[in-house]
Computed example of a mutant assay.
Amino acid sequence: MSEAPKPAETKTDKTPLLDVNGEPMHWLVRPTTIKLLWLGGIALLAFVTWLGTTVHPHVKFGIEGTLGFYSWYGFATCVAMVIFAKLLGVGLSKKDTYYDK
């Protein structure tokens, strides 16, 4: 006679995720928290962009009235600042042997 399949065992005590030092991970660096923060940020961005379609903008420049202007303008500005910082770092960096002279 064959045995009936055993139900899957469930753990009631969750062991915390550990970092490389064996200590519990901070809640902000856990994979589930990071995923929830990404989803929340995307939802907030979508909500704010939708909200921009419901409010009449008082624009001073023509481009300011486009759909999601503040969303894509903020993103483009952030990308431009990162690129500028990288180029500035290349221009200001010294060789590894600079202080050996």
Rank of each mutant, 00 (worst) to 15 (best):
residue 5 P to G: 00
residue 1 M to N: 01
residue 63 I to Y: 09
residue 71 S to A: 14
residue 46 A to I: 15
residue 18 L to T: 09
residue 12 T to R: 04
residue 39 L to Q: 11
residue 91 G to D: 08
residue 24 P to W: 07
residue 18 L to H: 00
residue 26 H to K: 06
residue 10 T to W: 04
residue 90 V to N: 03
residue 49 T to K: 04
residue 30 R to S: 01
residue 74 G to V: 00
residue 82 V to A: 12
residue 3 E to D: 08
residue 84 F to I: 14
residue 92 L to K: 03
residue 42 I to N: 04
residue 39 L to E: 13
residue 45 L to G: 01
residue 26 H to R: 04
residue 60 K to T: 14
residue 77 T to W: 13
residue 73 Y to D: 09
residue 23 E to F: 04
residue 75 F to D: 01
residue 101 K to Y: 12
residue 61 F to P: 01
residue 48 V to G: 05
residue 10 T to S: 06
residue 16 P to Q: 08
residue 45 L to M: 12
residue 92 L to F: 06
residue 45 L to T: 13
residue 59 V to E: 11
residue 73 Y to I: 04
residue 63 I to L: 08
residue 87 L to D: 07
residue 86 K to R: 13
residue 89 G to L: 01
residue 18 L to W: 06
residue 85 A to V: 08
residue 69 F to W: 12
residue 51 L to S: 03
residue 73 Y to G: 02
residue 7 P to A: 03
residue 55 V to N: 01
residue 16 P to H: 10
residue 19 D to N: 15
residue 66 T to Q: 10
residue 32 T to L: 08
residue 54 T to Y: 06
residue 13 D to Y: 11
residue 30 R to T: 15
residue 48 V to F: 11
residue 7 P to H: 03
residue 96 D to M: 01
residue 84 F to H: 07
residue 93 S to G: 14
residue 80 A to K: 07
residue 69 F to Y: 15
residue 97 T to L: 03
residue 53 T to N: 09
residue 93 S to L: 07
residue 55 V to T: 15
residue 62 G to E: 15
residue 44 L to E: 09
residue 65 G to Q: 00
residue 71 S to T: 15
residue 83 I to Q: 06
residue 18 L to E: 09
residue 45 L to C: 10
residue 100 D to N: 11
residue 45 L to N: 01
residue 44 L to I: 12
residue 81 M to D: 10
residue 99 Y to L: 07
residue 48 V to R: 11
residue 40 G to T: 05
residue 58 H to Y: 10
residue 66 T to N: 00
residue 98 Y to I: 02
residue 53 T to W: 03
residue 19 D to P: 12
residue 22 G to T: 04
residue 46 A to W: 02
residue 29 V to K: 12
residue 43 A to I: 09
residue 97 T to Q: 00
residue 36 L to G: 01
residue 59 V to S: 13
residue 100 D to H: 13
residue 55 V to R: 11
